[in-house]
Simulated scan of single mutants.
Amino acid sequence: MYDAWFSRPVPVSTGLSGDIRNLLSADQALDLLIHHWRDPGSQAHRSALRACRQAVSGGVSADVAREIFVEAARAARILIE
């Protein structure tokens, strides 16, 4: 298993208070997708789950997973831009 570090952090707003987290890896993004996602089950969510799992297992690069995760976070309106 790999941490699959991103080349740049992904800032997202989490929780009820909107705390900002800077996700540094596909592993951290995967944790958010599984345990704390606002819009689970959407197509973007499923794509990000798949990409982050593949990055953690070494199947795709971390930055490919990062881009897919960013799109899912944007769709869920949690991406800080």
Rank of each mutant, 00 (worst) to 15 (best):
E71G: 07
I20D: 04
S47L: 13
F69M: 04
L32C: 10
V12P: 00
G58E: 10
V10Y: 03
E81R: 14
R77N: 12
E81F: 09
D39C: 09
D3R: 10
R53P: 01
L16Y: 10
R8L: 10
I80Y: 13
R53Y: 11
I78K: 02
L33F: 04
D27P: 00
P11C: 03
H35V: 03
L23R: 00
A51E: 08
E67D: 15
D19K: 14
I20W: 06
C52V: 06
E67I: 00
A65N: 09
A55I: 08
S61T: 13
A29H: 00
G58P: 15
S47C: 12
L30Q: 03
P40N: 09
A75K: 09
A73W: 07
V56M: 10
I68L: 10
G18I: 00
D31P: 00
R74K: 14
A51M: 07
L33T: 00
V70M: 12
S42E: 06
R74M: 10
D19F: 09
S25Q: 05
E67H: 07
H35T: 13
D31W: 12
A26T: 05
N22K: 09
R38P: 15
Q28P: 00
A48I: 02
Q28C: 05
Y2H: 14
S7R: 08
A44S: 14
A4Q: 05
Y2Q: 13
L30E: 03
A44I: 01
L79G: 02
S42Y: 06
V70R: 11
H45Y: 08
A76G: 07
A29Y: 01
D63M: 08
D19A: 15
L32W: 14
D31L: 06
L30M: 09
H36M: 05
H36R: 14
L79T: 02
W37L: 04
L23D: 01
L16N: 10
R53T: 12
G59K: 12
Q54G: 01
